[in-house]
Every structure is written in C-alpha cells, then in structure tokens.
Design a protein around this nucleic acid. Structure first.
Lengths: 199, 199
DNA sequence: TTTTAAATACCGACCGGTAGGTATTAAGAT
DNA sequence: ATCTTAATACCTACCGGTCGGTATTTAAAA
C-alpha cells in the first residue's frame, strides 16, 4: 500500500510531537489513542512506534517540548526590555498569552505528574529553573532578599497556574486582559511593600 | 460465600464514596479500577454497581462530596468570626488546610472536567456560588464595588488553585505556613489599595 | 550511468491483556 | 414469601504494542 513520503527521523519525530500535542490537549492522556495520534500526523501506529518507545514516551516528549517553549518565551520577554519593571510587566503579559495557548495541556501535565515519575521530576526541575531565573533577575535589578523574591515568584506563579485552571474549568466571566492589569498592579504593590526597588 | 453484613443503601453509598475518594486520589480516574474501589469499601463490583450507575457516576459523587465539604468549611470559617477582617483571615487559613487535604483529587477533578461535561458544569457552578458568597460577604462588611470584589476573589482563588498544583507537582521548599501569612498580608494590602474598607 | 544491495521508514493485521459492565444467582433481613 | 443487598461468572470492547512485510530512499558496485 501507498506510503507516506519518507522524512528524516528528526523531522518526523517533531511532526508526531505536534500531532500528539493536539490530541492530548483535546482528549487527555487516556482518551488519546496511539492510533489517533499517528493518524493525526498522517502515519500509522507502526511508524509511531518506530520513532517512540511507547505512549508514555510520546507524552513525555510533549511535556518537554511545551515547557521548553514556555521557558523560551518568558526569557525572551525578560530580555527584550532594559528597564526591569517593564521587563517584568512584559513577562507577565507573555505569561497571560501562554494561559490561553496551553491551558488544557498543562492541566493534563499536572494530572499525569501524579502517576509518571519523570513527568513530575521534569516539571519540578523546570519550575525550579524558572524560579532561579526570576529571582536572579530581581536581585540583579535591585537590592532585595532572596527569601522575599522566592515568595514573590511562588505566589505569582501560583496565580498563573490558578488562572489556567479557571480558564479550563470555571469559564471566567472576567476578561483575562483586565486580570492581567490587576496582576501587574499587585506585582508593583507587592514589590514596593517589601521594599523591592528596581532600576 | 459469606457476605458483608447488609447496610442501608444511603450508608453504604457514603462508604463507597469514601473508598472511591481514596482510590481516585491515589491512582487517578483511569488508574482506579471499579474492582479496587469496591474492594477498598470491603465489597465487590456487583455491590458497587447496585449503588451506582457506572464508574463516572461514582466519580461524580466524589466530586460533589468533596466540593460540598470544602464549601461547608469555608462558610463555617467566615461565620465563626464577627470581625470581617479576621473572618477573611480565618477563611484563608482554612483554605490552606484544604490544599493539603485535597490536592491530588482536585487536580483530578480539573483534568476530568475536560471530558465529563457534568463535572465541568458542577465545578463552574460551585465556583460561582463561592464567588457570590465571598462578594456578598465583602459588600456586607464594607463599602465596595462588585467588580473589584470579583477581581479580588478571582485572584485569591487562583492563588489557592495554583498552590494546589505546586504541592502536587513542584514539591515546594517554602513552608505553606509562611505562604499563608504572605497571602493574608497581600489580601489586606489589596483591600486597602482598592479602598475596600471593612468593619 | 545503470543496476543492485542495503538501510531506513512506514503499513497493517493481529494478539494479549485489561477493565467496565451485566445477567443471574445467592444470602440475609423483614 | 418477598424484598433488598451482595457475589460470581462471564462477556465484550478496546487499546497498547508487536512483528512480518512492503515501499522508498540511499549507497555501493559494475
């Protein structure tokens, strides 16, 4: 029977990951069959298993791809502004966009972290790396204690995770844009309160 | 062979729900078998299916039970204090306890809200009810705009959901108690900033 | 340049295992 | 005797994963 045109393994793997993102986001881990993922990529299961060890392996590749993409976007937002306060504001705005892009998948990641050890370890590692990055950024930009920066990051990050949940489960009436402004305001308030002066 | 002593349907149902809570919390929806839920309750599948229509029905009963329990605890915390600021503080402290008690299950609820319509509808309804309750409480206690109360609730609620995620996925270094104090402080700050005077 | 061989990527039929769910039967209580 | 609750045996459907085979591409040899 007629085959899909051959592609280099790396390229095909990336394509399968893209297809998997869509199917996992739509149907969740259990609801997504390996057959549907392969079909979405224009292939069959045999091909999928040629490139990946098993279903969990595919999922883990998606976890890495999405989280790496998020980290790149936040980093770019921080780097694009010289003024620290504006850089934080820009990073917050980027984070809000990511809520809409990845809300279903990230809830799936959290749920699966409970049963797949390497997913949990990876998410913990990425979270820690982002915390270190943000804390370093804040300390570089002003005179402030590490402990307060840590708390700041923890609560800010919790707000974003919580808004992910809200967008997937509660169907928020408020516009995310309005909330974005609120979060920027609270951030400035909090930084002032704890004498975290920037610039 | 020897049967478990018979119980009134209502009592047995409650017992099965308790068992289901534990198994769903530990293994997630897919990983939890109806056989294991029955066994955990000291019964067999036949009995489980006598009391429940199907697996999804068991899960939905757990969703209702846990969310109702949470709502009761928050309400009690608000009612126990006459002073509004202290009432809010107490409610926040109760909410922090609930994070530890229900973190795995709530992530499971959010994940399943994506594929089970009635779970999503129920969570949205409960969220709305709690929002109305908190907003009414704030308005009763001080002169304040509904829109600002709404935002306040949304962000505060997001923090708790986000901390749920953190406790399940990121393995936070910070003590929740320290964060509890921070959240109380931010709450007061925010209420002051928006001129939400209480008392 | 052409032919042949080898390597790579992909297809699809099939299988084993699992779990949800049901029909029937049994046991216990009233 | 009747009703309620519980147990058992079994069925069915589905899915993850395998493997024999095929098609396509690349490399080597003539």
């Amino acid at each position: 029977m007629k085959q899909s045109p051959k592609q280099p393994a790396k390229k095909r793997r990336a394509q399968l990951i893209k297809a998997a993102e869509r199917v996992f986001a739509r149907k969740g881990y259990a609801g997504a069959t390996t057959e549907e993922i392969a079909r979405t990529a224009g292939l069959t299961k045999g091909a999928l298993y040629f490139h990946f060890r098993n279903k969990e392996d595919v999922f883990f590749a998606v976890v890495k791809e999405v989280n790496d993409s998020i980290a790149r976007k936040i980093t770019r937002a921080l780097d694009e502004e010289a003024n620290p306060e504006k850089a934080i504001e820009k990073a917050i705005q980027s984070a809000f966009k990511l809520i809409e892009d990845h809300k279903f998948l990230t809830v799936e990641f959290w749920q699966k972290a409970h049963t797949i050890r390497r997913v949990k370890d990876f998410l913990a590692e990425e979270h820690k790396n982002m915390q270190n990055q943000i804390v370093r950024f804040l300390q570089k930009s002003g005179d402030l204690k590490k402990r307060e920066c840590d708390s700041f990051f923890t609560l800010l990050h919790a707000i974003f995770d919580g808004l992910m949940v809200r967008q997937t489960c509660y169907g928020g009436e408020d516009d995310l844009r309005g909330l974005s402004k609120q979060v920027v305001e609270i951030t400035k308030l909090y930084l002032k309160k704890n004498k975290l002066k920037l610039g």
